[in-house]
Design a protein around this nucleic acid. Sequence first.
DNA 1: TATGGAAATGATAATCATTTTCATTTGTGA
DNA 2: TCACAAATGAAAATGATTATCATTTCCATA
Lengths: 121, 121
Amino acid sequence: MNKSDLKLISVLERTGGFASAQELHQILRREGDGIGLTTVYRALQSLVDDKIVDLLRRDDGEAIYRLCGDGHHHHLVCKGCGQTVEIEGGAIENWAKTMAEEFGFREVAHTAEIFGLCSKC
Amino acid sequence: MNKSDLKLISVLERTGGFASAQELHQILRREGDGIGLTTVYRALQSLVDDKIVDLLRRDDGEAIYRLCGDGHHHHLVCKGCGQTVEIEGGAIENWAKTMAEEFGFREVAHTAEIFGLCSKC
DNA sequence: TATGGAAATGATAATCATTTTCATTTGTGA
DNA sequence: TCACAAATGAAAATGATTATCATTTCCATA
């Protein structure tokens, strides 16, 4: 956790919601911070690794970032507008554990996302 | 619906599951078809527009396609050696459907992968 | 305080999927 | 056969992301 990481966290706190690396970079630049795009990408990656921010994808594939809510959760993402709902994955946790056991896997993690069109789109 | 569209559908039927545009192009080339990458992208786009194939995103943002309503499966991947097991996701299908309904989402698709260490690693 | 090495930084170039452009080919109805 | 629209694909353009690498900043220790 270094200075750049903290800057990014600060921007994400203030903006709320999702933002792309390029947008976050522009915001910092606009605020007079001379931070480089490379550093923005590095900081975001490190924050994702530390599970401090979530990384999702916009419809066009661009990566978007947001501060993690607490705890383990999954996402329900609208393909139209990008609106995202954090959901619990109770059934998934069991499924992952069961499948892993069945095939003798240990130290398991899993990913699961649901994509669709929200009621507005 | 033209000749290229049909070629792509045929490949997707044979491979099953997801494949990227680049992969689909390589498969067709390997089979002796001189189809161009541009045409592959165009055909996939038109199939997505017609809701004949689903478009999702891999973790790295690359677009992946699969036939709609395809009986699909999930993967159990070893972080050590890369060995992959195809597994059924019965519990997940229901979970995804339930969650989507709860939040008023339609045309839903989902991704789910489990990562761990296999018995040999 | 000086110093030496490790970590952080950022400009630049490279990568890679995807989209545009545009000239050529193919198919089709008159 | 002719004219014309649709389809095709090579090549260039685009845009996000990653790799390189020289330089700067930290920081512990002498």
